[in-house]
């Protein structure tokens, strides 16, 4: 164990000095649930963390590809964490986001890591916190987190991102469903992608009218974009740069961070499997199990 820790320390030192290989290895360790003691970011330079979320198939990855290009032109170093679900049955995952991010493979100033949920949404958000911190410490100025938002899990992105873009597409209207989950209010900007196809305008109007029922001052703007044709992307980036998050969202953020940390504590407990077994056999109750794990 002690040996392992010194090994991690060396990796960390080398990653902080700019080794891409060792940064990548550290991310794997964090993903596996290992504790990596990342020093607090003491410099005044803070990374900008952008969350991209929305239903499957609306073009999030293509849009991320455009954002990478946009920031690259500004001379920024961009890191992307692209999260895809893994099969709960086999644990396997097909991570295909890179296919739609041509700009991702084109240089030393872009780092893209695909992550699977490993059938464990709580787990991934917990390690995400450390991953983002590590990327930030290693000098990645702009960090994008891309997740498939469905139901409750998408709110997690609030815990990590400074700014959130919610993406929807024509003929979906899923976002109106998402309204119930609250993400629509938490977004800084709502983007209706594929603006070149019929139906996009109507979806944008529907979302706008749904938003008009809530407090208008802090409801997000709705913007039509075509990631495929690269129209509206510059405007989107301008809007997101100057958008101001409402204060109440900071509270939600702290709350979500607490929940993530809590999940992390539970899931990384050495007694987790034993507790699950004991609950299964009926020798302890759920509450007992929780007490043991949170001790």
């Amino acid at each position: 164990m002690a040996l392992e820790l010194t090994g991690n320390k060396e990796l960390l030192g080398s990653a902080l000095r700019g080794s891409r290989r060792d940064l990548s290895r550290l991310l794997s360790l964090i993903e596996k649930g290992e504790d990596v003691a990342i020093p607090e970011n003491t410099s005044t330079k803070k990374s900008m963390i952008l969350g991209i979320t929305g239903p499957p198939g609306v073009g999030k990855s293509t849009l991320v590809g455009r954002i990478i290009s946009y920031w690259k032109k500004e001379g920024k170093r961009v890191a992307v964490l692209a999260i895809d679900p893994s099969s709960p049955r086999t644990g396997g995952a097909l991570l295909g986001d890179r296919v739609r991010m041509d700009s991702a493979d084109s240089g030393d100033h872009v780092f893209v890591r695909s992550l699977s949920t490993r059938g464990n949404p709580g787990g991934i958000s917990a390690s995400l916190m450390s991953m983002v911190k590590l990327l930030e410490s290693c000098g990645w100025e702009n960090i994008i987190i891309e997740t498939v938002g469905s139901g409750q899990s998408e709110i997690k992105i609030v815990a990590f991102a400074d700014k959130i873009i919610l993406v929807d597409g024509p003929d979906r209207g899923d976002i109106i469903q998402a309204e119930k989950a609250g993400i629509i209010e938490l977004a800084d900007l709502i983007v209706v992608n594929k603006s070149d196809t019929p139906g996009a305008l109507k979806v944008a109007e529907t979302i706008k009218s749904a938003l008009s029922f809530s407090n208008e001052n802090d409801s997000p703007q709705v913007l039509l974009v075509s990631a495929e044709r690269n129209t509206g992307v510059d405007e989107m980036m301008e809007l997101i740069r100057y958008s101001k998050s409402p204060i109440w969202r900071d509270r939600i953020k702290i709350r979500e961070r607490l929940l993530s940390l809590w999940d992390y504590r539970l899931l990384s407990s050495s007694q987790l499997n034993q507790v699950i077994e004991d609950i299964e056999t009926g020798s302890i109750s759920l509450e007992d199990g929780l007490d043991i794990l949170s001790r």
């Binding site: 891409r20 396997g92 295909g96 890179r98 084109s106």
Partner: peptide, 25 residues
């Protein structure tokens, strides 16, 4: 994937340099 592996697909027409960087990242 169905065999339980985690697979990252790169898409078409990648250069050796790109592929090596993807494997690293």
């Amino acid at each position: 994937r169905d065999g339980g592996h985690e697979v990252v697909y790169t898409g078409l027409r990648r250069t050796p340099e790109e592929i090596s960087r993807i494997v690293m990242d």
